[in-house]
Amino acid sequence: MSDQKSLDIKALGDSAIIIKLGEGIQPSVHQQVKNLSFLLDEYPFDGFIESVPAYNSLAVYYSPYLVYQSTHGFQTDGTPLEKVIDYMNTLAIQMSDLPVTEGRLVEIPVLYGGEFGPDLQIVADTHTMSIEEVIEIHTTPEYLVYMIGFAPGFPFLGGLDERIATPRKLTPRTSIHPGSVGIAGKQTGVYPLETPGGWQIIGRTPTDLFVPDMSPPSLLQSGDKIKFYPITQEEYDEQKKVTTCQ
C-alpha cells in the first residue's frame, strides 16, 4: 500500500462518496472509472448499495449502518467513512492489473431527416454542408458512452465531430419523441423517453433504448461504444414492427 497513491475520495453526504479518477472528458480516465466500478461489483463490501459511473468519477452509495456493524472485509475500526475509504484504496491496488477492455459496440439504426429529423436541415445550413455530409460525419465515429443519466437509458456520448457541433434550439420543444437522435453543442445523443428538450433533432431510431421489464433495462451502459448507421423509411417501419412485437 505504501507505494500506492491513494484515491481522490470526497464524502457525498453521510451515505455516499465520490471518487475522482482524473480530469476532463477522456477515454483513458473513463477506463479507470469503468475498472473501479467493475472491481467494486466483483468485490462489494458489506453495506454497498450501488455505484454510478460518470465522466471522470464514480459515486459509491452505501449504508453506513451496515458498514458500522460489519467486521467482515474491513481493515480498520474507524468510522464508516474511514472503513469505506480504506476498502476502496485497497481495492484500487488491483486496478493496474486489469486489462484494458474494449467496450461493447452497439450499432444503432437511424432514419435521418424528414418528419423524424426536423432539424437536420438547420444543422446542415449552420455549417454550409449538404444533408448527406452531416449524415456521413454523424455516422463515422464510434461514440463512447461515458454515462447514463438525465433520463432512464439516456447516454452521454463523447466523440461528436466538431464540424457538426450545433447550438441548442433557442426555444426548447415541449415534447420530443422517444428514439429521437439529436445534437446539442458538442454532444450527441438519443432520447429514450418522451421528454421536453432543446436538442437539434436530426433523426430517429426504431431501437428501444429503455425497456423497464428487461434486465438490464437500458440498452446501453457506461463504457459501451455506439455507431449510428442510416436506414430508409421502409427499414425503419420494418424494425419498428419487430421491436413492437417483442
Binding site: A54, Y55, G149
Partner: peptide, 8 residues
C-alpha cells in the same frame, strides 16, 4: 462535469 448526487 455531471456526477453522482444523492438524497439531501
Amino acid at each position: 462535469l455531471s456526477e453522482g448526487v444523492t438524497f439531501g
